[in-house]
Design a protein around this nucleic acid. Structure first.
Lengths: 287, 287
DNA sequence: ACTCGCTGATACCTGCCCGGTATGACAGGG
DNA sequence: CCCTGTCATACCGGGCAGGTATCAGCGAGT
C-alpha cells in the first residue's frame, strides 16, 4: 500500500526522463501499452497525477517532479544494495569473498596523496584490499550513491559533499598550466583575471553531467588529450598544485594567487558501517 | 539483473530481523514456503549466500549483514518517495495540492525556538504551510529517511546528523530538573558527578530504539509522566535549559556546570530540492 | 478539407510467476 | 523412539505483467 516497487520506479523515471512513452518503452525493452498502463496504475495507487498528457508530448506535474528526484534516489539505493552485497559476498572476485574496498578517484588527480594513503593503509594490521576505481569528471558522487564505490576522493569545490560523510585530507593552491613558450609562462604569478580571457589561449572545457559549458576553448575528454593540446599551444587549464606531477616538458605551471584553494576530502556514504572503511578513515585522518 | 525489487528487500529484511522464516512469513502476512523460495531466488540472483541455515535457526553471513543495512536504506528511500510524492500532489490534503512542509520536532522540546521559527517563516512572502509533527525520542532521523517528515529539529548530541544537511540554530546549557523540596534543589549549581548516583533520586531512563538502558531509575514513556514522577520526588532528569518552559511549581531547575551543551539544528535530507524547504532554511539561518 | 502521421489509451489474450497447501527431511529433546 | 520444530520440496491455481491489435484525438502538410 505504501511502498513502491522498483519496477514502477524504473518505469516512471524512464518516462519522466524521456517525456515520451514510446521512447521510454523502447529504452526499457518493452512495448508501449503496458508501460502506459503501469504508469496509470502507479498514479491510481498514489492517488496523484504525475504527468500532464498534453496531446503533443508529456509534462511533469509538481508531484511527478518530486517522484523523479526521490525515485532516482530510491533506485540508486536499491542498486547500491545489490552491488555492495555482491561485493561483500565475493560474487565478483574469483577467489571467494575477500575483504575489499572500492575507492573512486578522479583519474590522475591527487597522485601523491593517494599513494601515501594506500601505503599507510596497507601497513595497518588487517587492512582490506583496496581497488582504485578511476572515475570520470565529478562522477564520484554517483558512484558512491549507486554502490559502485565504497569511498571516494573528492575535490571541493568541484564535487559536492551533500549526503556524504567526509574527512578533510589536504588543501592546495591552484596553478595555470600553460604552453612553456607562451609569454604568460614567464610570469612568476598570475590571477584569475589574467587567464580568464587570453585571446590565443582559451580555457579548456570539461563536460559537466555529459554536456559542455559554452565558451571558445576546446572540448576535453581526457587528461592526455588536454596535456597534448596545451603542449601544442592551443589551450590552457587551471589545476590544483598537485597536477605538477603529470606535467610535460613543454608545459609551464604558474601559481594563481587568487584562485580558491582546492580541498581534497575522503568521502563515504553516511550510513556506512563497514569495518574496513572505518580503518581507511582512521589512517586517512592520521595522515 | 542488477536492481533488486522492493518485494525481495522487504522479504529479506523481515527474515534477517526475525532470523526465523516462520515468524518472518507471519509478519509479512504470507506462508512460509514461498518466503523460503523467494530468499533462495534472491541468493541465486545475487550469486551470494545471505543466510547460514544452521539446523537450529538462521544466522546472517557478512553479505547478509550488508544487505540488511543497505536494504533498509533502500526501502526507506522507496517509501519516502511514495510519501513525498503523495504530499506534493496533495493526496493527503482534502483541499487539493497545497504547498506544505512537515517538520518533525521532539515533543515538547525547543518550544520557544520553534515558535520564533514558525512565526518568522509565516511572515515570509509565499511561505508554505508548516505541519509540526511530534516525534518520539530520537525518532526524527527515521522520519526524515522514510519521508514522514521534510525537515526536523534535532538536538546534538542526542540525535545523529549523519546523512543529513543541517544548520545550527541554538546552543544551550543543561539543567538538572529536581523535586523542589529535595536538598539538592537548594544548590546554585551542580555537576554531572553530583547527580549521577543520588541514592534517593535515580536518573529517569528514556527508551532508545524501543529498549531501555539498564539502571535503577523509572522507565519513562512521555514527558508528562516524567514531570509527575519528579514532582512526586521519585526521580530526576537532565534537560536542556529551554525545558524551564514546562516546569511545574513543584520542580526546581539547577544549572549543570560541566554538562555538554545541547545544540539544536534544523536538519533535512541531503538531496532535497524543495523551494519551500529552502525558504525555511533561509529564515532559520537569519534567526 | 481530408488524410496521414504521431501521440497515448483501450481491449483482449497468454504465459509466467507469486503464493497457497500438503508434505518431506533432518535434528534435538523428553 | 516418537514428537516437535525447523526449513526445503512438490505441486497447483489465479492474478497480473506484458504482447498484439486497435482506437482516439490532434497537427501538419498538400
Amino acid at each position: 500500500m505504501d511502498t513502491l516497487e522498483t519496477r514502477e520506479l524504473r518505469y516512471f523515471v524512464a518516462v519522466a526522463e524521456e517525456l515520451h512513452f514510446g521512447r521510454a518503452a523502447e529504452r526499457l525493452g518493452m512495448a508501449q501499452p503496458p508501460l502506459s498502463r503501469a504508469i496509470q496504475q502507479l498514479e491510481r495507487r498514489l492517488g496523484v497525477r504525475l504527468l500532464d498528457r498534453d496531446r503533443r508530448g508529456v509534462a511533469l506535474t509538481a508531484a511527478g517532479e518530486m517522484l523523479l528526484h526521490e525515485g532516482r534516489a530510491a533506485l540508486d539505493a536499491a542498486t547500491a544494495a545489490a552491488r555492495r552485497t555482491r561485493r561483500a559476498g565475493g560474487a565478483d572476485t574469483p577467489g571467494g569473498p575477500r575483504n575489499r574496498l572500492v575507492l573512486a578517484v578522479k583519474a590522475g588527480a591527487s597522485h601523491e596523496l593517494l599513494h601515501k594513503l594506500l601505503d599507510a593503509y596497507a601497513a595497518e594490521p588487517g587492512a582490506a584490499e583496496i581497488e582504485v576505481l578511476p572515475s570520470g569528471t565529478c562522477e564520484q558522487g554517483e558512484m558512491l550513491r549507486d554502490g559502485r564505490a565504497d569511498a571516494a576522493l573528492m575535490h571541493m569545490p568541484y564535487n559536492s559533499l551533500t549526503g556524504f560523510d567526509s574527512e578533510e585530507l589536504m588543501s592546495e593552491g591552484q596553478i595555470a598550466v600553460l604552453p612553456a613558450r607562451h609569454p604568460l609562462a614567464a610570469r612568476r604569478t598570475l590571477t584569475m583575471a589574467d587567464v580568464a580571457h587570453v585571446p590565443d589561449l582559451p580555457l579548456a572545457r570539461w563536460p559537466r553531467h555529459g554536456t559542455y559549458p559554452p565558451g571558445p576553448g576546446p572540448e576535453i575528454h581526457d587528461q592526455t588529450q588536454l596535456a597534448q593540446l596545451i603542449a601544442l599551444g592551443r589551450t590552457m587549464a587551471v589545476y590544483p598544485d598537485s597536477a605538477r606531477a603529470w606535467l610535460w616538458a613543454e608545459h609551464a605551471a604558474v601559481p594563481l594567487t587568487d584562485a580558491p584553494p582546492v580541498i581534497t576530502h575522503l568521502a563515504w556514504p553516511a550510513h556506512s558501517r563497514s569495518l574496513a572503511l572505518a580503518g581507511l578513515i582512521r589512517t586517512a585522518t592520521r595522515l
